[in-house]
């Protein structure tokens, strides 16, 4: 797998992406002809009402799902030409995730949760790197805590540490503050943007929070599966 030759500053590109699913009433188009290009270090907010297709677009951009038509590339690699395992390898190498419901593994401690992507990448010093990442999000004292022993804000900070620990080129965040109170949400958002700046990663976040979207460099608004011009 090699980085593509497209514009060297473009890390993420979607061309005419459409997603259609089968429904009892016949084929249902949930995304239609979405095209976008995101450059390194850029921040993009995808906004829209519930059911507008935000999470579907995120799953296609991140290679978690395949479009019905169109192409998606990350770091120049055409995801639509790859098998599921090929897309997994791209995600492992270039992508990080933060989810609305945190998705921490309940049976693992905070440290073990952050170590997980490093272990998957067979990183040499997973423990120390993960501990440092948790230090970066202010949770040095919580390394041995299990998710249920942490508050929502703390759980999301663990998830952010886990997302950034592999130094991804693109970070996808799905409603990262959606499950948090205002203060915790504010703190998590600050952390996301701060790490985005310090690591030089690209941030693509899905939100219906206009305030959060306003902090991004660019906004893509979706309505009924189509980009609002």
């Amino acid at each position: 797998m090699q980085d593509g030759s497209m514009d060297e500053k473009t890390v993420l590109e979607a061309r005419d992406v459409t997603k259609t699913v089968a429904s009892p009433e016949g084929p249902l188009t949930i995304l239609a002809d979405i095209s976008l290009r995101v450059r390194a270090g850029e921040t993009l907010a995808i906004v829209g009402a519930s059911g507008a297709g935000k999470s579907t677009l995120l799953s296609l951009l991140a290679g978690l799902d395949s479009p019905s038509s169109g192409r998606v590339s990350i770091a120049g690699v055409d995801l639509t030409a790859l098998s599921e395992d090929g897309r997994a390898a791209v995600r492992g190498k270039y992508v990080g995730f933060v989810f609305q419901s945190f998705h921490l593994i309940p049976s693992l401690t905070a440290l073990e949760n952050v170590m997980l992507p490093l272990e998957l990448a067979n990183s040499a010093d997973a423990r120390a790197t993960a501990a440092a990442a948790l230090g970066d999000v202010g949770l040095s004292a919580r390394l041995a805590h299990y998710p249920k022993q942490l508050s929502g804000g703390e759980q999301q900070r663990v998830a952010i540490a886990r997302a950034f620990v592999t130094r991804p080129r693109v970070l996808f965040a799905d409603e990262p503050t959606g499950n948090l109170d205002t203060a915790s949400g504010q703190r998590v958002a600050d952390l996301l943007f701060e790490l985005n700046r310090s690591t030089g990663s690209t941030l693509v976040l899905v939100t219906h929070d206009r305030g959060l979207a306003a902090r991004c460099g660019r906004t893509l608004e979706l309505d009924a599966g189509r980009a609002v011009p």
Partner: peptide
């Protein structure tokens, strides 16, 4: 199931 979905999200292949 959830942990596997997460691992795959982080780059784990089916074979892995």
């Amino acid at each position: 199931v959830d942990a596997v979905a997460l691992m795959k999200c982080m780059g784990a292949s089916q074979g892995f």
